[in-house]
Design a protein around this nucleic acid. Structure first.
Lengths: 129, 129
DNA sequence: CCCATAGTTCGAAAGTTCGGAACTATGGAA
DNA sequence: TTCCATAGTTCCGAACTTTCGAACTATGGG
């Protein structure tokens, strides 16, 4: 159908959606982070400031997460307004929107990340035996 | 099936389960409060200190929540460790476990309730447009 | 051009949530 | 006591969501 002409901008080709910070809703954030895998991914991005790629995070704890599930987890985090993703060549550069979210919902992300850390040591690990 | 035989318990219908505070998981809390209806119910119980009954909360905003859904919402809040429910005669007395949860996950509940309030009072909209 | 890598989309199976109808428990009225 | 009203739970089917393998698209390097 649409003959898409390649734009001169070599980075963006599919428009990844990121909500404006004022459209970010608490229920979306809580839903996104109510999955321990996603919480671990987010904690990791936050700790690193920026994680190079989805694949950099493909094993959490002792469990390997399939590519398609990972892709979906990143989409949920993105749609919730928690991270910003941009294509850099063949991979994706994800960084957290901590500062924006903190300004809108003060203390929320810190409390959540701290809660996961208090629960299992690190948010990087799904609950084990 | 044919006539059901009445179970031989003259006690309460079923012992309501409440997790010990050390068994409360952050993901359960986030999941429970990621539903705006449940968040509103919880905010209301917190604000009141104690709400008399499930039915006291049966209409949130302009929407009537069916009994069975309400019953389930209270169960989710209970299982997440957010409220404690006891039978008082024909109805239920629910109160929040704020103090226990606060001791285990400091700042978490306050941040969540504040976030919903900041979002536009969605968590407990007063009657009106 | 072909291949490898990084990520997305498709689709089917499994799991969760919603809500109406039927049920149980309690207390009060007849 | 029996009957009724109220409060809440359970059952179960429909609708929705989640998961993950396979097929697909995009980009960069031989």
């Amino acid at each position: 159908m649409e003959a898409r002409i390649k734009p001169p901008c070599e980075e963006i080709m599919r428009p990844l959606f990121h909500p404006a910070i004022e459209d970010v809703r608490p229920e979306a954030i809580l839903h996104a982070l109510s999955d321990p895998n996603r919480a671990a991914i987010f904690a990791r991005i936050m700790r690193a400031g920026c994680v190079e790629a989805c694949s950099a995070v493909s094993a959490l704890g002792d469990r390997v997460i399939p590519k398609s599930s990972l892709s979906n987890h990143f989409k949920v985090l993105r749609d919730a307004g928690l991270i910003r993703s941009e294509r850099r060549g063949v991979e994706m550069r994800n960084h957290s929107r901590w500062i924006e979210v903190e300004a809108r919902f003060p203390g929320l992300l810190a409390a959540i990340v701290t809660a996961y850390a208090a629960d299992g040591g690190e948010a990087d690990r799904p609950p084990g035996p």
